[in-house]
Design a protein around this nucleic acid. Structure first.
Length: 996
DNA sequence: CCTTAGCATGGTA
DNA sequence: TTACCATGCTAAG
């Protein structure tokens, strides 16, 4: 790696000098890996950081640091590393950049996607982020000390396990930094210049093409140097990439070239906007780089977020964590990525599967499956040595860190927790941090969701944040008049709230907070994964419920109720609804209704009258009802035991978490419910269902509770309501029901007129149907039924299920999206179980517009689209096969206490009268009307005798059940079928398989 | 028989 | 359809 040979003759490499000298001095590193040989004068100037002053003074490109005003030359390679381009425009010298980074309380680290592959985006989005050289995730090469115990670049260069690295590291590369910091225009401009050579960075033969060599002065602190990521070339890579890397930190480390650096993905095309993307994906597909341009490279066709880390790997390190990491030094922490530990990762095998892209981007490239030892330190500074290696896998690689068990155990991590990988710059040390599952927070909460020494989030901030976040999301969405965005928002809010719930649990003293499960993360067995899916489902449904449960009408008026995609939403057209604070309804000793509410600041529980609507951010100071306890310092009236009594399920669930594995499974099942945050605390003093079916009581039905759940008809085992009952629950239900009935009536009357016309042409209608996709599923239903006999016999049809009229509630859309999930009998059975839970039905009220549809078990046929979807599923041989195999699986069978028929999805209790506009021409809206009326009557009866949902199925269903024992439809679809052919779907398929 | 290493499989996105 | 990756499986130690 000697650079001496580089000198062509002994002419000073500085084109402005060309002085012949006997002995040259090293200047910047050239792309060849050699150093520019400078004469003594030039070399001194370079070393002193005055090279530009001396030779480029009259050149263009001088700019002032936005912070200190220092003049920085921005137009040559020599100075290229001494500044950063600010996204707001202007530049900042590297020293200022570093300072500002250190001092700026950025809320959270921007995800790598912001500063990695798509650099430009990062500029746009991360306003507050003051990037500093090397602060972005840097490929391993810039942190070579990570492996093999190498402690500095120099050492690496000589000891690197990859010979190529030694060479490459000396090469000039075009670093990420310059691009990362370019404002949009500048970036483009600069990139173009880079492309066309105007910025002759790294172009051999020009004075500037080299770059900061090993000797740099203060002015070159953190200068961009560039270890070319040649090691990539080790096996797959063919050529160097450009990357400017941050140079040595100071004179004191003259031999460390690239301690802090950011590199550009090699194979990324350097076209504009620069998809710097290949920072990730590193070694496997690095393409060669040209002279002044990086050649376009083939982008791996993984098609998924090309070149980007999946969001789940984005480091969500918080500012506090960053500070913790860096408090011992002035280092800059570069969060690289994180990973939620899977069961395997946390298991005893000691292998932590690394996301491929992360591994390739941030860890040393390895061509040998044996891999390399990788030194890493934990947050306590303890160093660990892991083996970073890979296995060939499907023409790809599977990267693992071996020997992580001790470390993981040391951190007391388990599946579901998250390990974070960061790098300390400029040391280049790799740091393995961790975050307990309970601490998983959204990025925007990062700064506030501080961790204490144990890595446990402190309640206050996080909780506040959550609340705020949920509130904002909800309010925002609803204010807009809601719509599907509301659902999205609610979903988001769910995430927030779920986390809050974790915090709640913590506040309740649960040592082991309930684990958050990140959607999309797959961990554990298939069974677990399925359960996780279910959790999500539960979360979603509850979220919708919760969202509305927390909403209070704004002063401007009451909401209107609309139904979208089977979900009912209260729409606030004028003002955003008030997001209320969840409380625990209770009855005091005097028998008066009160509610317990937790102060957002001190977390003490305060008693307030039942009729008080509390803002989402309620604190003791808001406790005007009880002046004595209107300050946080006031003692909590509620004892811990009392609180425990109020929150039994949480505590019980907590205990169960510590029990057996089976119990763990239960807990995981419950996690979804636990995600309900404060809503969960409204739960009655019942243990959470030991199984999904176990829930037979209305979970949150308490006198006075007016949440959306509780305003549903009781499921039978809860308090009975008489028809004359005018409690809030009944009033609410009646109000809503009335509203819905009116709506339906209106629509149906329209439809009826239309249907009347259609009836004049029954044949055509029949033809239409015959040719319609709807028919086929029906046929399939019949034909497939025997095939599913096994399934049905084995568990798909649970007698109880039938008797109790537990029918699956399926949102067609959900079905569409979750078809594969639905294929899984576990899923089905669990879904059924969900239905067993009255609260589920209740909460699904939004989906099932007509409560009586449920009460009477009016199974409804989905809309045609849904049927079509299902048809395709049924048509798919795999569909049957998979189901069959599922049945063949004893485990599966064991789980199928009750399961849905394969056609479960075809019965849609979500039938939405409000969607009558989807009626097909053959619709029998007359039946519909009758049915609705009957439903209304049923409801009244229901209220009267307090019968459960399930017990009414056989009641008045004759009219809705066709002669063929078909399942009947509450809506037009049924009508369609009814009109054109008896609906054999039915029970035949789903309820009585053998009848076929 | 237990543990480990490596590969294979299949679910998921 | 494909890549990724969690985890199962099995041979080797």
């Amino acid at each position: 790696m000697s650079s001496s040979a580089a000198a062509s003759g002994n002419v000073c490499f500085n084109s402005n000098c060309k002085e012949f000298v006997e002995k040259t001095r090293k200047g910047w590193r050239r792309r060849t890996g050699e150093f520019a040989e400078l004469c003594d004068r030039c070399g001194s100037a370079y070393d002193d950081g005055k090279f530009c002053d001396a030779f480029h003074l009259n050149s263009s490109g001088w700019r002032s640091c936005e912070s200190c005003g220092k003049q920085i030359h921005c137009g040559c390679i020599v100075s290229f590393h001494t500044f950063v381009l600010l996204d707001a425009g202007g530049i900042e010298c590297i020293a200022c950049a570093r300072k500002s980074f250190i001092l700026t309380p950025n809320p959270a680290w921007p995800p790598p996607s912001l500063f990695l592959p798509l650099q430009p985006e990062r500029i746009k989005d991360v306003n507050n982020w003051n990037p500093i050289a090397g602060s972005g995730p840097v490929p391993w090469r810039q942190a070579p000390s990570l492996f093999n115990g190498s402690t500095n670049q120099n050492e690496l260069q000589h000891k690197a396990p990859f010979p190529e690295a030694t060479v490459s590291i000396d090469r000039l590369s075009l670093g990420e930094r310059p691009f990362a910091l370019l404002s949009d225009n500048n970036r483009k401009d600069s990139c173009e210049k880079l492309m066309n050579g105007k910025l002759k960075i790294g172009v051999p033969g020009t004075p500037e093409d080299g770059y900061a060599g090993s000797n740099r002065d203060e002015a070159h602190k953190s200068c961009l140097s560039a270890p070319w990521q040649s090691s990539y070339a080790n096996s797959e890579l063919s050529a160097p990439s450009f990357c400017l890397t941050v140079g040595s930190a100071s004179k004191n480390e003259p031999t460390v070239h690239s301690k802090v650096s950011v590199s550009v993905p090699q194979q990324t095309t350097l076209s504009i906007p620069l998809p710097l993307g290949k920072q990730l994906g590193g070694h496997a597909t690095v393409d060669s780089a040209g002279e002044t341009q990086v050649r376009s490279s083939k982008i791996r066709g993984d098609g998924r977020g090309k070149n980007q880390l999946l969001p789940r790997y984005w480091p969500r390190i918080t500012d506090q964590e960053l500070r913790r990491l860096s408090e011992d030094s002035n280092s800059v922490i570069t969060p690289l990525f994180e990973k939620m530990l899977s069961a395997s990762d946390a298991g005893r095998i000691g292998r932590l599967v690394l996301p491929k892209k992360c591994a390739e981007a941030y860890f040393p490239p390895i061509s040998n499956p044996e891999g390399l030892p990788l030194k890493m330190q934990d947050l306590k500074g303890k160093e660990w040595m892991f083996q970073f290696r890979f296995w060939p896998n499907n023409n790809s690689r599977m990267y693992v860190l071996e020997g992580v068990t001790p470390c993981i155990q040391s951190m007391q991590l388990q599946a579901g927790d998250t390990v974070t990988f960061s790098r300390i710059e400029p040391e280049g040390k790799l740091v393995m941090g961790c975050r307990k599952a309970s601490n998983i927070l959204t990025a925007d909460q990062g700064s506030e969701a501080c961790s204490n020494g144990n890595g446990v989030a402190t309640n206050g901030n996080a909780s506040t944040k959550h609340t705020k976040s949920s509130e904002e999301v909800l309010a925002n969405s609803t204010k807009k008049g809601f719509s599907s965005t509301t659902l999205v928002a609610a979903t988001s809010a769910r995430a927030e709230i779920k986390m809050s719930d974790d915090l709640v649990n913590e506040s309740l003293g649960n040592n082991r907070p309930i684990r958050c499960k990140r959607k999309g993360s797959t961990m554990g067995s298939k069974r677990k994964r399925m359960r996780i899916d279910n959790d999500n489902l539960v979360e979603l449904k509850v979220t919708v419920v919760q969202a509305q449960g927390l909403m209070r009408p704004p002063s401007s008026g009451a909401p209107t109720v609309i139904v979208i995609e089977g979900c009912e939403f209260e729409e606030y057209e004028e003002d955003a609804p008030i997001i209320g604070r969840p409380t625990i309804p209770h009855m005091d000793q005097l028998g008066e209704k009160i509610q317990w509410v937790q102060c957002e600041d001190c977390f003490k529980w305060r008693k307030v009258p039942d009729n008080v609507d509390l803002p989402s951010r309620w604190t003791c100071s808001d406790n005007s009802c009880d002046p004595e306890r209107s300050v946080c310092s006031a003692a909590q009236e509620l004892t811990a035991d009392h609180l425990r009594d109020l929150l039994p399920h949480i505590n019980k669930a907590s205990k169960k978490r510590k029990a057996s594995k089976q119990e763990m499974d239960l807990v995981e099942t419950l996690d979804g419910l636990d995600a309900l945050a404060h809503l969960a605390i409204l739960e009655e003093g019942e243990t959470l269902p030991a199984s999904p079916q176990a829930t037979t009581k209305h979970p949150r039905h308490r006198p006075g509770c007016t949440c959306i759940v509780c305003i549903q008809p009781p499921s039978g085992k809860g308090p009975k309501h008489k028809q004359s009952c005018d409690c809030n629950v009944c009033k609410s239900v009646k109000r809503r029901f009335k509203t819905l009935m009116l709506k339906r009536e209106k629509k149906l009357s329209e439809k009826e007129a239309e249907a009347t016309c259609q009836k004049l042409q029954p044949q055509s209608a029949g033809q239409l149907l015959d040719g319609d996709d709807i028919q086929e599923p029906i046929d399939d239903a019949v034909h497939l039924s025997p095939q599913h006999g096994e399934l049905n016999n084995e568990g798909s049809v649970d007698p109880n299920y039938l008797n109790e009229k537990k029918s699956s509630v399926e949102d067609p859309n959900y079905f569409d999206e979750k078809k594969s999930s639905v294929d899984d009998t576990n899923y089905l059975s669990e879904k059924i179980s969900s239905v067993d839970d009255p609260s589920y039905l209740n909460e699904k009220e939004s989906s099932v517009d007509d409560p009586n549809c449920l009460n009477e078990k009016k199974l409804s046929v989905d809309d045609p689209n849904c049927l079509n979807e299902k048809k395709s599923a049924v048509d798919d041989p795999n569909y049957v096969d998979e189901r069959k195999s599922s049945v063949d699986d004893p485990n599966c069978l064991n789980e199928k206490k009750s399961s849905a028929s394969p056609f479960k999805g075809e019965f849609d209790l979500n039938a939405k009268p409000d969607r009558d506009d989807e009626l097909s021409p053959g619709s029998d809206s007359g039946s519909m009307m009758r049915m609705i009326k009957r439903a209304a009557e049923q409801y009244v009866r229901h209220c009267d005798n307090g019968s459960s949902v399930g017990n009414q199925r056989d009641g008045d269903g004759a009219g809705e059940t066709n002669p063929g024992n078909c399942v009947i439809v509450s809506g037009s679809h049924q009508a369609d079928v009814d009109h054109n052919r008896p609906l054999p779907i039915s029970t035949a398929a789903s309820l009585a398989p053998n009848d076929q």
